[in-house]
Design a protein around this nucleic acid. Sequence first.
DNA 1: TTTTATTGACCGACGCGTCGGTATTAATAT
DNA 2: ATATTAATACCGACGCGTCGGTCAATAAAA
Lengths: 203, 203
Amino acid sequence: MAPKIVDRQAKRERIVGAAITVFAQKGVANTKMIDIAKEAGIGKGTLYEYFRNKEDIFASAYDTMNRDMEQKIAAILSEQTHPARQLQMIFEYSLDYFSREAVEFSSVMMDFWAEGIRRKSPEMMGVINLKEIYDRYRVIIAGIVRKGQEQGLFIDVDAVSYASLAIGALDGLLLQLVMSPELIDITRMKTTFKQTMIQCLEK
Amino acid sequence: MAPKIVDRQAKRERIVGAAITVFAQKGVANTKMIDIAKEAGIGKGTLYEYFRNKEDIFASAYDTMNRDMEQKIAAILSEQTHPARQLQMIFEYSLDYFSREAVEFSSVMMDFWAEGIRRKSPEMMGVINLKEIYDRYRVIIAGIVRKGQEQGLFIDVDAVSYASLAIGALDGLLLQLVMSPELIDITRMKTTFKQTMIQCLEK
DNA sequence: TTTTATTGACCGACGCGTCGGTATTAATAT
DNA sequence: ATATTAATACCGACGCGTCGGTCAATAAAA
């Protein structure tokens, strides 16, 4: 009259972790349910006790990875108050993160993008709302720029365009990093970022 | 004792054109062989008389789209000699191209990227060599920057990093354009590009 | 008639999700 | 203590739909 007790939340997280590992190795599209199950050390059927379907695991993994990133950005913003420094920190952190910590992360993220793009037109339940994520980052960067302008520190550039450009540059670099890691010198890239994206902003 | 005569080259091109149309409508991954055949107005089996497999059609479509882009870049370079103007023209042209043909071209291109990324690690015969394409563009942009530096027009920034950054920015913007077309104002973006990516370069 | 082009019915591999059955645990009775 | 029981966790063989690629038959041109 009493069931086996399992920490379902913890197990969900373990499965998501396993999924991310496999995604990194084989690519999201080429990952089979059985691959995730094996990595998590459980049977395929058990996956369906914790997730409705493949899509569901996919979305959970995406959420997890994205929450990580946003928390770190938030931390940076609270450490620094000078707009130019905030931008610089965000750029440098992103570059570091992409290159050093996250060869894994990067290619998985690329897969998520590809999926997100593929799902934009059909009335798919937008499990992965890429647009929303972009909007959020755009708001953050544009906010910093506007603050700098109000303080008379930055030139009069369109804050939203600048934010789109900066986010685009980071994403695009991630793309190239995944393709040719040997070609992108992070240290130099940081300098170049500062020389172009930041110094030109300052009066 | 004489067969039906067909212009095989022309028919291949027709098929590739049909493929691109369908890719734009349904996304590369969701396009079935039968969809391409129907769009081209031929039977499914006939596809295999002109292409070895799906991969082959895919690669041909990619080549076609890419050759278009490169030819236009080359034309720009021959029209302009001033380095800063060359960069500006390339940026503006790319932005125009992306925005004008965003729906069709852009989302198909994103699919190609996603595929290219997915195929980087396994010893797949690199039908779609994304790395090579990137290298080519990088060489072009970096070359312009170096020329500007030699002429004493540009500041001393690392040409390769700059090129990666610029290409990244364009790609990343394309990504955002696909996601939220309404958010990206091309005219403003051109101005911002000039204010950040070009003016900061000039002494 | 011969040669080539075209076709779509067919095949088989593949992978998602299900389902019937098994294993494990904890409350309860003895 | 220990047997009993009930609720839940776990599993993997299998069903079924999907889709890339093949091939035997057909059409058309010369």
